[in-house]
Design a protein around this nucleic acid. Structure first.
Lengths: 337, 337
DNA sequence: GTGAAAGCGCTAACAG
DNA sequence: CTGTTAGCGCTTTCAC
């Protein structure tokens, strides 16, 4: 480990000067600058990020809280967030809360403000009070996917119009002539799924068609759960010609359920999801879904977080992503007549 | 931000004592201990990880280098690695190299030894020389998936018997009576895929059956590439009754290609992959594959890395994971006669 | 048992 | 332009 002062020694200057040339701060004579640079090169000096962070009073990382990075939606978000962070000189620490508030709190207590300058919160089942507490301790928090643009939370956030996403999905099905639609709704405590379901319901109402409560199944946000839910739905309601799922994972499960039940998609049954994860276009048939702007949400979240870090006085703000858009693939088609 | 000395002040002691009670080091009177603890509680004190790291001369994070966390295989590994790291008091920084050696080198130069105490390297296209250099600078490196147990690299590693994985896949196909087998081989520079292919080839030879070179396609490690490769293969060789892929992603692509070509799996064509990623059991038909012990590899890698960090003198070592195992699902069956 | 003091490697005034 | 100095928050040796 070569240190600043070793470089300084070699270059015949003091560490402050070396720091200056490296940070391009202050005035340094061209001669010394070159000498210092040569010494840096010769010794293979690399700044000690931890020491620098301590001296600058600002940590070099951002934390990303997710329930599990293994959930297929998060890696895509994490990739974009990491890239954005990196472009701003920050590294990304991934924290898997496993949906356990205690685990999440432990992370926050340990790293927020001491190792990470700010926290990106993806759906990770963290009590808002804990988040507000970490904000108060000086580590800004940004909620990456807020679902109720009409009700800004008490924290900065990137809002996605999930209500509209649900409505778009609903309208798509209705436009295709579907009158008997089943719904697979995420059962998580957070409102993300509820909002999408509300949007779908609104689309039905708007079309003068009411969704029958019995045709809704609340399921975990996972392929298996979607599979079971769809199977139950399809067996209980043979007349269903379409299934609306609040998320791609259950929708993908529904695709499998239909296949196992001997139903052809989309001839016998249409299936639509929301999000447009990687696998949506890779399933057979490819899944029709309403795409959420994941990448830009990640970039916006990182940008907002950095603003809050750099301007602590900045007031809590909410920003909207672009509206989700229908991605029509092969899993939806005209209703059987 | 409450600091040690603020706590010390409140408790009427010095910061050294507070540090002692918190670290459970040295001797501290029961009275003072309680007083200190009360002060910590009252002020909501949390140790500043960056400062601690600097003082201890040991960084609180481990770095995980992957080409892209969005590649479906990595999140599962990352989850297990993060858990293992966390159990040992370390946080995990995810570094996406995008398969670009320059990006990778930039990461290594910046964080190895300064922000991260050690580096886990998953397939990320990093020149071994760069890795050796970072080792020399004092940051241990562990290769997480080494493919040639017979040829230990010059770095510590967790070795997986990929040759055997390929052989298992080959034997499975042959046992099912397949005589006309196509191969989809990953084309990455690294030897991971080559080793699997060699294993497969060995299984063929062993069975007195030789694989026809023309029935091999080299493809990127992705669903799309596997799709195209399989399609080409199937169109060029109508007599094929099975496809061996060196990885699950191309195998999953082959599944789609077969479907689009109107072939039924496994009646018309059997398909097998290697790895057993999450999606393998979720595809329809579910993919038969040879499971690589991902979780234990991650745990072993973290354990080995920590050993090397704690005992810098320890010699470069290689450890084997358990042997990959066949997971028979629905994508393989008896050869058509 | 507890405190004083030095130092981890770097940055940031402020002098000169 | 360059050096001196004083920390950042914590750990740790060594006196008392």
């Amino acid at each position: 480990m070569t240190t600043l002062s070793e470089v300084a020694h070699l270059a015949g200057v003091t560490s402050a000067t070396v720091s200056n040339v490296l940070r391009k701060r202050g005035k340094v004579g061209e001669q010394t600058r070159l000498r210092v640079l040569a010494a840096v090169e010769q010794l293979g000096y690399r700044p000690h990020l931890t020491a620098r962070a301590l001296a600058e009073g600002c940590a070099p990382t951002l934390a990303l809280m997710v329930s599990s990075i293994a959930n297929p939606f998060y890696p895509e978000f994490a990739l974009a967030a990491e890239r954005a962070a990196r472009e701003n000189g920050r590294f990304l620490i991934v924290c898997n809360t496993n949906d356990d508030p205690d685990t999440g709190r432990a992370y926050l207590d340990q790293i927020a403000g001491t190792l990470s300058d700010g926290v990106l919160v993806m759906n990770a089942n963290l009590p808002i009070d804990d988040l507000k507490k970490t904000e108060q301790r000086g580590a800004p928090v940004v909620l990456c996917m807020w679902e109720k643009p009409d009700e800004p939370p008490e924290l900065s956030c990137i809002a996605v119009n999930f209500f509209e996403a649900g409505a778009i999905a609903g309208r798509h099905l209705i436009d295709l002539g579907h009158r008997h639609i089943g719904a697979l709704v995420g059962s998580k405590a957070n409102g993300i799924h509820a909002e999408r379901y509300r949007g779908y319901l609104a689309a039905c109402t708007e079309a003068g068609q009411k969704h029958v409560k019995g045709r809704t199944r609340y399921v975990e946000d996972a392929v298996d759960a979607g599979y079971e839910g769809a199977k139950a739905l399809l067996e209980a309601h043979p007349k269903l010609t379409a299934i609306f799922a609040t998320n791609d994972l259950p929708a993908l499960g529904a695709l499998n359920a239909a296949a196992d039940l001997g139903l052809t998609v989309p001839q016998d049954i249409s299936i639509i999801g929301i999000t447009d994860i990687q696998w949506a276009r890779l399933s057979r048939p490819a899944l029709t879904t309403v795409a959420v702007p994941t990448n830009s949400a990640a970039e916006m979240a990182v940008a907002l977080l950095l603003e809050r870090i750099n301007h602590p006085s900045q007031t809590t703000t909410m920003r909207m992503t672009a509206t989700p858009e229908l991605v029509e693939r092969a899993s939806t088609g005209p209703a059987k007549t």
